[in-house]
Design a protein around this nucleic acid. Structure first.
Lengths: 321, 321
DNA sequence: CAGCGGTCATAAGTACAGGTTATGACCTCA
DNA sequence: TGAGGTCATAACCTGTACTTATGACCGCTG
């Protein structure tokens, strides 16, 4: 991924908010996990046992977390521990962090997976980034001993792996299905125009029209990337996209630039769920242009997905609109 | 928070998947933050400087993370570091964890907030749990030096604080606006029926009807809680809700029980976004009954929200459907 | 009432992860 | 060729989080 072309600028704004690194103000994952266990089991000792640590360790960790947050989290009594009101809130927030960490873990395990793993998945970047981790968490719950390996690349690479029998199931986005593959549409992905809440476009009343979009300098992925192709095609009738404001090579960099207020940006709705919910980015409605593509599961013609591949495929069905 | 009434059972299933605690398989928050900084800045040294640590520390941490994940994450070159393909994937997953941690931090800071803070917010549990952290992250970006304090309770408690001038802005869910308060609807919340993917209801073709829902033993919040009231009211024409399968006092416990397959469960759509996306729970369509309530911002009559309260209020507008 | 089984807290000792500074190797560019 | 950037290695330090051992408290039960 290319470095941000203007290192100092966008960066400073992003790094500003907390000053001190996040890690010093947020308990570590172990502590959050422990808190969830305490909430669920109603006892420090039992929670400790579940996580494989001693009771005093658990006691100390919770206390450290309470000191860090400056709030009592659990009411200790001689017959168990219950969450305080504040503890209930904190526990829910902790749950979201742990869920994200589980998705991370599921993805990481698949990434590390050896060549001889049971289920070998090849997926396009967008799907691998935003959808697969969730599916893998679900798959691991359903089939705990399925080892998955993951290879991420573009459509051509996915097709190549499948046809070489180096992957059992593939996922691609885009309009055309590569030669030699059967496919099933499992969902759709729309491109959104988003901007920081402070940007003029965020305050507009009505939607913008394609001509205006085409005439504005945007923050975009590099030409040739999936999202860029869809945008180019969609805006071709209106003169094509204008010279980009910035061209970045990763979705993360794109979002960081947009959040920092560099300008409006176009990317997959899958990539910005969190940012929209947290109101760090705002959706800008666009009228009269359909920026949308299919998400497909693919496999070599003839070989109906079976076993774990079939399980994973059925998980993805109906998971999306 | 009530402890899970059947400690061993539901627990074992939940704890099973990874065996080893998550924290040992996922890098800590500091490492994830560092990785994001490297991705953004294109250099280990610069990332280290941004986080206030030395360059060798950053180098070592990234290396430790690569060893943990078993994958090369960055390509080091004498003129900077770029992410590998795998690194780009991991960085995106890391971004989601860090985002969740930021929301946690924003909430925690507000919770700890002293009485004399600038903006004092009182909110109902559901809003405090699922929406406020995101808004606070956004608010901190817009107004970095606004200190916020948060008090969570039921509608009556929120009203009390506002009328006693111990809070500047409140958020409540439910149909009736407490006496003496002005309000603005900022969104809606629907109750969903959800079940584990393995549950029979998850495989149904058509929607279930209210009579069947009323006749089935469900996992519910305790009577008197906001979600329970809405459900009771909605199902009253059909004979009211059946004797619950389980009655739990926290949303987290509810979800844990449902995920573990104990049975279908009814809760706010706000609470299950993650679980639905990860396919750990499945939405069960219900026909002919409207389980929905308004989410409102409230303040004492006469006192139009001003200053930071006004900022926060405007953030919430249009953030939801 | 004594004693058992459960809770949590405290204390003392150890191990290691992550930090530091100092230094060196490598590349690029003026 | 030397200056300025990159990253890696080495030796050392420190604090955190763990361990085990113990004690205080509560409630149930014989």
């Amino acid at each position: 991924m290319t470095a941000d072309p203007r290192p100092g600028r966008a960066t400073a704004q992003l790094a500003a908010p907390g000053a001190a690194p996040l890690a010093h103000r947020v308990p570590d994952l172990g502590a959050l996990e422990l808190l969830l266990a305490v909430a669920r089991l109603g006892s420090l000792g039992r929670a400790a046992r579940e996580l494989g640590i001693s009771q005093p360790a658990a006691s100390g960790r919770i206390r450290a977390m309470e000191r860090l947050l400056g709030v009592a989290l659990v009411d200790r009594s001689p017959r168990g521990s219950r969450l305080t009101d504040a503890g209930a809130l904190v526990t829910d927030w902790a749950g979201r962090v742990v869920e994200a960490a589980e998705a991370f873990d599921a993805g990481a395990q698949a990434l590390r997976g050896r060549r001889d793993s049971r289920l070998r998945v090849a997926a396009s970047m967008t799907i691998a980034e935003y959808l697969l981790p969730g599916w893998l968490v679900a798959l691991r719950r359903a089939r705990p001993d399925t080892a998955v390996s993951l290879l991420a690349g573009n459509s051509a690479a996915v097709a190549e792996r499948l046809l070489a029998h180096e992957a059992d199931l593939g996922f691609v986005e885009g309009t055309a299905v590569p030669e030699g593959l059967d496919s099933a549409v499992i969902g759709h992905d729309r491109l959104l125009v988003v901007a920081a809440p402070g940007h003029p476009w965020a305050r507009r009343r009505g939607p913008i029209d394609p001509g205006e979009l085409a005439g504005t300098a945007l923050i975009l992925r590099e030409p040739g990337s999936g999202t860029r192709q869809v945008l180019d095609a969609g805006l071709a009738p209106y003169g094509g996209v204008a010279e980009p404001l910035l061209e970045l090579a990763s979705t993360t960099a794109l979002k960081a630039a947009a959040v920092s207020g560099a300008g409006p940006c176009v990317l997959s709705e899958l990539a910005v769920g969190e940012e929209l919910a947290a109101h760090r980015l705002v959706k800008v409605p666009v009228e009269g242009v359909r920026l949308r593509r299919d998400l497909r599961a693919v496999w070599p013609v003839g070989t109906r997905p079976a076993g774990p591949a079939r399980d994973l495929l059925s998980l993805t069905r109906g998971a999306l609109e």
